[in-house]
Design a protein around this nucleic acid. Structure first.
Lengths: 115, 115
DNA sequence: AAAGATACCTCGCCTGTCAAGGTATATATA
DNA sequence: TATATATACCTTGACAGGCGAGGTATCTTT
C-alpha cells in the first residue's frame, strides 16, 4: 500500500464515478478493480467506499438498484447519472489544475526557477 | 479560490516545508507567498497553517525561534531541520506516485487504454 | 480617531477515513 | 461434517485535519 488517506481524500468520489462511467458496477467489484488498477498500491476501504456511495446517491450523481442474482450474494448496482457525468468532467479538469498548483507549491517542474 | 480543503489535505505540511527549504520564514509571510505563487488560486487558512506548524514542530521537522524585530509585530520564525529535509524529499517522490495513480484511477493519460 | 496592514494565536465544529464489528450465500477443503 | 475462504452487503464510533470565528498587539495611513 502506498497512498495515504489524506492524499486520496477528495478523490474518492471521482474515482468511483470514473468506474461507473464505463459500466454499472457494485461495491465489491469497484473495490477489486481499484486494487488491480493500482497494482495494490491503493485500496479503498469498504467503509470509505460505502459512505461515498451514500454521499453520491444523495447528491444524485449516481442511482442504485438491486441486481437480480439468482445465485450467490445479492449485489447493489450503481449507475452514474447525467449530473454525475458532468460532475466527473468537472473533477477531471480540477484535477489538472490541482496538479499544477501543487507542483508549483512544492517547487516541482523547473518552471521559472531562475531570474 | 480553486482548491478544496479535501484535495489539499495531505499537502499542507510539504507545502510549508518547501518554503522553509529556501529560507527561514514565518506564518504571515508563508501565507502571502502561497497566495502569490498560486495567483490567488489557493489560500492556506491561518488556522490551518498554524496547526500544521504545531504538528511539524512536534514531529521535529521544523524548529521555531522568535525574531528580534525592534519595530512592528513580533515574528515567530521557522527553520527546517535535517529530518524535515528528508521528509520533504520523501513527500516529493510520493507526490509523483500519487499523481500517476490518481491519473490512472481517473482514466487520464491515455496509457494502456487499448490493450 | 479610525481603518487597515502586519503578526500572532485558540476553540470548537464539520467532514471524510477507517478499524472493528456485523449479516448472508456459495464453494473448497480437511 | 466442520471450517475456511471468497463473495457481497452494511453500520458504528473514534480520530484527524481544515477552517470559521473569534481574540490580542503593533505600526502606518488617512
Amino acid at each position: 500500500m502506498s497512498l495515504t488517506s489524506d492524499v486520496i481524500r477528495g478523490h474518492t468520489e471521482p474515482i468511483i464515478l470514473s468506474h461507473l462511467i464505463e459500466k454499472d458496477s457494485y461495491g465489491y467489484q469497484i473495490n477489486k478493480e481499484i486494487l488491480e488498477k493500482t497494482d495494490d498500491m491503493y485500496e479503498m476501504k469498504e467503509a470509505t467506499l460505502y459512505s461515498a456511495f451514500r454521499r453520491l446517491e444523495k447528491a444524485e450523481l449516481i442511482i442504485s438498484y438491486w441486481g437480480d442474482e439468482t445465485v450467490g450474494a445479492r449485489r447493489r448496482y450503481y449507475s452514474i447519472t447525467e449530473k454525475g457525468r458532468k460532475a466527473y468532467e468537472k473533477y477531471k479538469k480540477e484535477w489538472e489544475t490541482t496538479k499544477s498548483i501543487i507542483d508549483r507549491l512544492l517547487n516541482i517542474g523547473g518552471k521559472s526557477n531562475e531570474q
